[in-house]
């Protein structure tokens, strides 16, 4: 029979796991969004070398599993003298991952903005950067936001494997709990429910935010 008698004692560790997971997501969302915009700009740059380098990075990350990237960064890089602690390695792997998808999302968004808009800005004497930041990007965000927020949810779900390098996220706490309670199914059931709740709450929060700030006046 299912046994949840361990649950009341486990609330503190579960809360701390949720806090770590959400902390990771917040940091990665900020870093990943900024880098995605920078990467998309780099893919439109005039330097062929830069465009190619960003393209190669995107392909490399999109065609290898997140878990492999994480282990390579955490266990493999010390071979090159680069030692990162578990949390830094997790943030790096998650950010690299989100950015590889984010660049494509932002690029698609930028392509959806009519060329004339940028040209109009340039005709007003604005600089290239200025045109990008104040004319093109705000319009592109309407296309970008829904896809990017899906990507953030995906990263939240993928983040469960960072427990494997001993980041004390929600899944790590579940692993520890089940090794003490010997009730693995019940433990993972509760934690799966927590992830579902987090994903739902984040999705709703982002939708609400989008209506308020991005799609305002529509």
């Amino acid at each position: 029979m299912l046994d949840f008698s361990w649950l009341p004692d486990a609330l503190t560790v579960l809360a701390s796991g949720v806090a770590t997971t959400m902390g990771l997501i917040v940091v990665v969302t900020v870093l990943g969004t900024v880098l995605s915009i920078a990467g998309a700009a780099a893919r439109r740059s005039r330097s062929k070398g830069l465009r190619r380098a960003v393209g190669a990075y995107v392909e490399l990350v999109r065609n290898t599993p997140f878990l492999v990237q994480l282990f390579f960064i955490f266990f493999g890089l010390p071979g090159l003298g680069i030692r990162l602690n578990a949390v830094t390695a997790a943030i790096l792997a998650m950010t690299l991952n989100m950015t590889a998808y984010g660049i494509e999302v932002v690029r698609a968004g930028l392509e959806a903005v009519p060329k004339g808009q940028g040209e109009g800005g340039a005709a007003l004497g604005l600089s290239r950067t200025r045109v990008f930041l104040s004319v093109v990007l705000p319009q592109a965000l309407r296309v970008i936001f829904p896809a990017l927020s899906s990507q953030i949810i995906i990263i939240l779900l993928e983040s469960a494997v960072v427990s494997q390098i001993a980041v004390r996220d929600l899944t790590y706490e579940a692993d520890l709990l089940q090794s003490r309670t010997f009730r693995p199914f019940e433990t993972y059931l509760v934690v799966t429910g927590l992830y579902l709740g987090l994903a739902t709450a984040m999705r709703r929060g982002m939708e609400a935010g989008a209506h308020r700030w991005i799609f305002r006046g529509r």
Binding site: L189, T192, G193, L196, A199, T200, R204
Partner: peptide
């Protein structure tokens, strides 16, 4: 699809 938390939980059970 994420508006469906109650349904998803019901399905899980």
């Amino acid at each position: 699809m994420f508006r469906l938390l109650p349904q998803a939980l019901a399905t899980a059970v």
